[in-house]
Design a protein around this nucleic acid. Structure first.
Length: 428
DNA sequence: TCTGGGGTCCTAGGACCC
DNA sequence: TCTGGGGTCCTAGGACCC
């Protein structure tokens, strides 16, 4: 029997909590953070959840509610959230050696070999420390599998909100009671489609799913469903993944602030996206073998003529050279761009990524000839753009007008990542 | 008027081969 | 009317995650 102890640490309303750290007046006030382009709600404070606002709700539909309830609205400030995430993860790592950073606001911990007298007390203390050191409130779930740790975290957030910790090991023997409190749709791996299906078959909570015949579950929910039921029964299928896997795709896509109709404007956007792809690839030390470019009109607006298209380009040699990426992406764009449409969004995706160190040398190419990557030039650009300002050095193809740039009218400052925007302490 | 962005994994079905 | 039987590889689409 190879039993393990997993914990999931999840930041509460993460983006809203980040805004609150630097603007304490938002504490206990209904607050939301919007997606890029100020389109829809991507983070809600508890007060806003209680008002019934759903994740992803378009903000323009909530105008009245925002005014009536005096909801504080913020544009997304990802550099700030990324930096705060870093601080939370660093704090956790001070106390636990086995940490998997699962997303910007979540970490799995393996506590199996952590010799502490009382797991629950340890987690309560960890939670308090994270809050003290970073200002971010978190919830912690503890259980014998990752899926159950996720479920425990839901309980910690709802039924056990005052302590913020739920430890399944304290309730061995009567898990049933707690699993019945968790709707199937709240489980890790059960999305909209499966929730609908399961509900139609009268499977409504985690206990009912756990009790199903595993062969049946595999048949209707494939292997992911099979693993899910095993995990609910306390058999770990997923272990801690400490070393982040290399990415297989890297994308940069954006909606435009206003419709774009002209090729040259879309070209500027695509050139910018391509440079960003190059930067990301070099940061990950990967090379792309293919590049995909796509453009879309606004599919929400049924009154406008619709068009969407994409093209995949095989790169002559695997590369992360921004200059090559821009050139190839623009070639692709010309191929799919059609006049007469109002474009709302475009994107560039690099595919077939391979590690720089595993580059398959071209048969005809001298193995020492990596000139085409222009490593020194790219390293210099990166040094300036990463250390000074991400847009210090651009390429001519990106243009300067940026007519496509997104709308972000309610952005907080970059309190932690830009010297000019550090919070000021004002004596009153 | 106004609806995000970035990922992963799995499967079915077609093309192709012997 | 009957119309082989495997394999493998690739891709599109769907499901999920945050």
């Amino acid at each position: 029997m190879n039993s393990r102890i997993f914990a999931l640490v999840d930041c509460n309303n993460f983006y809203v909590s980040c805004e609150r750290v630097f603007n304490p007046k938002l504490e206990n006030k209904p607050t939301v953070v919007l997606s890029n382009n100020d389109g829809c709600v991507i983070a809600r404070s508890q007060e806003v959840k209680d008002l019934g606002v759903t994740m992803g709700a378009p903000i323009f539909k909530l105008k009245e509610l925002v005014e009536r309830e005096k909801i504080n609205v913020y544009s997304a400030n990802f550099p700030l959230y990324g930096d705060m995430s870093h601080r939370v993860m660093a704090t956790i790592s001070e106390f636990v050696p086995d940490v998997e950073i699962y997303s910007i606001d979540e970490a799995f911990l393996d506590l199996t070999n952590l010799r502490v007298p009382d797991l629950t007390k340890f987690c309560i203390k960890l939670r308090k420390t994270i809050y003290k050191w970073t200002g971010i409130p978190v919830s912690i779930g503890v259980a014998p599998t990752k899926t159950l740790a996720k479920a425990a975290n839901k309980l910690a957030k709802k039924q056990f909100r005052d302590i913020g910790v739920f430890n399944f090991f304290e309730h061995l023997g009567n898990e049933e009671e707690f699993l019945k409190l968790i709707p199937v749709g709240d489980l890790w791996g059960v999305g909209r489609a499966y929730t609908k299906f399961l509900n139609q078959h009268n499977i409504n909570n985690a206990f009912e799913l756990k009790s199903l015949d595993i062969g049946y579950v595999k048949q209707v929910m494939t292997v992911a469903g099979e693993r899910l039921v095993m995990e609910l029964n306390g058999e770990p299928c997923y272990l801690l993944e400490k070393n982040p896997k290399l990415k297989k795709n890297i994308a940069f896509t954006r909606s435009f602030g206003e419709y774009q109709t002209k090729l040259d404007q879309v070209e500027e956007a695509v050139a910018y996206f391509s440079r960003k792809i190059g930067e990301k690839l070099r940061k990950e030390k990967e090379l792309a073998q293919f590049l995909q470019v796509f453009i879309l009109t606004n599919f929400h607006n049924k009154n406008l003529p619709q068009y969407h298209n994409s093209v995949i380009i095989k790169l002559e040699r695997p590369t992360n050279n921004s200059i090559t990426l821009i050139k190839e992406a623009l070639r692709g764009l010309k191929y799919i761009f059609k006049d007469g449409y109002q474009y709302k969004k475009a994107g560039v995706i690099s595919l077939g990524l391979i590690p720089e160190s595993h580059r398959q040398y071209d048969f005809f190419c001298d193995p020492n000839d990596e000139k085409y990557l222009q490593k020194d030039l790219m390293a210099t650009l990166d040094k300036i753009n990463f250390e000074v300002n991400s847009d210090s050095v651009k390429f001519a193809a990106e243009g300067v007008s940026r007519k496509w740039w997104m709308n972000q009218t309610k952005k907080s400052q970059r309190y932690t990542t830009n010297w000019k925007e550090l919070p000021k302490a004002i004596a009153e």
